[in-house]
Design a protein around this nucleic acid. Structure first.
Lengths: 186, 186
DNA sequence: GACTTATTTCTCAAAAGTGTGACATTTTAA
DNA sequence: TTAAAATGTCACACTTTTGAGAAATAAGTC
C-alpha cells in the first residue's frame, strides 16, 4: 500500500462518517478506513486537520466535476441536466459540502478563501438556472433559490436511493432528471 | 416551570442538535434547552435514554400529523398534497427520523417495535402513492420507491429553505408542492 | 409562613476520546 | 535479499465527557 492511497482512504472514510455524525470518534473513522488510529494520526495531526482535508477533498472533487460539465455544454438545459448527474456522482461529498457551508455554526463569508471557492463552484449552478429562466426554458413561478434547494434535495434523494438499494441503480439518474426537469418546467 | 414542559424542551433541543451532530456533548443539548446538564440527567439517565426519547417523540409527532391527513382526505391527490405539508411541518423530526432508520448502523427490521411503528406511519405515504399510480393520476414511469425518496428530498429542500431564509416563508409549501406534483405527473 | 417540587450549583470519580513516543512487524521496491 | 517506508502494537499523559450525590436556591401551592 502506498501512501497516497491510505491518505485518500482515510479522507473518504471520514467524509462518509462525518456526514452522518460530525463528532464521531476518530476510532470509528480509522475502522472504516481499515487502518489504526495511530496511522490516521500519522497523516493528520489533528481532528481539525482531518476535517479540513475532507473539506478540501470535497471542494476539489465537486469543483472538478461541475467545471467539466459547465465548460462542455453550451446549451443551458443540457448543461443543467449534466450538472445534476455530476452532483449525483459526487454524492455524499456534494451534500455534505453544502451542509458544511449552510449550517448554523458556519459563518459563510466571501472573505474566507474556502467559502469563495465554494461560491465559485456553486454559482455555476445558480447562473445556469438564471439563464434557463431568462430564456423561458423553466418556469419563472419558482425562485432561483428554491430551484437550487430542489436540486440538492433531489441529489439527496438519489444518494439515499442508491444507499437503500430500493431503486434500481440504472434508473436513479433517469428518475432524478425526470422529476427535476418536470418539477421546474414552464 | 412544570415537569412536562422541561422534558419536552430537552427532547426538542436534542432532536435539533442530534439531527446535525449525533454525538454532540450533552452539554450542548442542555444549553439549547436552557437547562443545566444536571437537570437533563434528572430526566434522562443516559445518552441512549435521551436518544430513545427523541425517537419516540419524533415517531409520535409524525404519526399524529400523517394520520390526521390520511383519514381526513379521501381524494388521493389532495391527501398526498396535504401529507407533504404535514411532513414539512414536522420538519426536522421527519428527516431525522428517516435518517435514523436508514443509516448504516441501524438494522431496520419489522420485528423491532420502533421499526414497525415507523413502517406503519410511512406506509401511508407509500399506499397513497400506489393509489395515485393505480388511478393514473401520476406517472407509472417512476417507481414507488423513487417517489417516496423524492418526497423526503423535497421535504429536506423545504427545511433547508426555511433555515437559510433565502426563500420567502410563505412560498415554501407552494413551491414544494409545485415541484413535487409536476415532478411526478403523468 | 410552611411545604413540596423543580432547578441550579458545586463536587467528584469513572469513562471515553485524543495525541504522541518507542519499538515491532509488514510491505514495497531496489 | 535487503534497506527503506509504511503500518501496527502498546503504553502513556492528557482532555473532555459523562453520570450522579449533596446541599442551596427558586417557584408554586396550600
Amino acid at each position: 500500500m502506498e501512501m497516497k492511497n491510505t491518505r485518500q482512504k482515510i479522507t473518504d472514510a471520514a467524509i462518509e462518517i462525518f456526514n452522518e455524525d460530525l463528532s464521531a470518534p476518530l476510532e470509528i473513522v480509522a475502522e472504516k478506513a481499515e487502518v489504526t488510529r495511530r496511522t490516521l494520526h500519522r497523516y493528520f495531526t489533528d481532528r481539525q486537520d482531518l476535517v479540513l482535508a475532507c473539506h478540501a477533498a470535497m471542494q476539489e472533487s465537486c469543483r472538478k466535476a461541475i467545471d467539466v460539465v459547465y465548460t462542455s455544454f453550451p446549451e443551458p438545459l443540457e448543461r443543467f441536466e449534466n450538472m445534476l448527474y455530476a452532483a449525483i456522482d459526487c454524492g455524499v461529498k456534494f451534500s455534505f459540502l453544502h451542509r458544511m457551508h449552510n449550517n448554523d455554526h458556519h459563518n459563510h463569508t466571501a472573505k474566507d478563501e474556502n467559502c469563495s471557492k465554494y461560491d465559485v463552484t456553486f454559482n455555476k449552478f445558480r447562473m445556469t438556472i438564471e439563464e434557463l429562466q431568462r430564456k423561458n426554458l423553466i418556469t419563472t413561478e419558482l425562485s432561483v433559490e428554491w430551484v437550487e434547494m430542489l436540486c440538492t434535495g433531489i441529489v439527496t434523494a438519489a444518494i439515499n436511493s442508491e444507499k437503500s438499494g430500493n431503486v434500481a441503480k440504472v434508473n436513479i439518474k433517469k428518475f432524478a432528471w425526470f422529476s427535476l426537469s418536470k418539477g421546474i418546467l414552464v
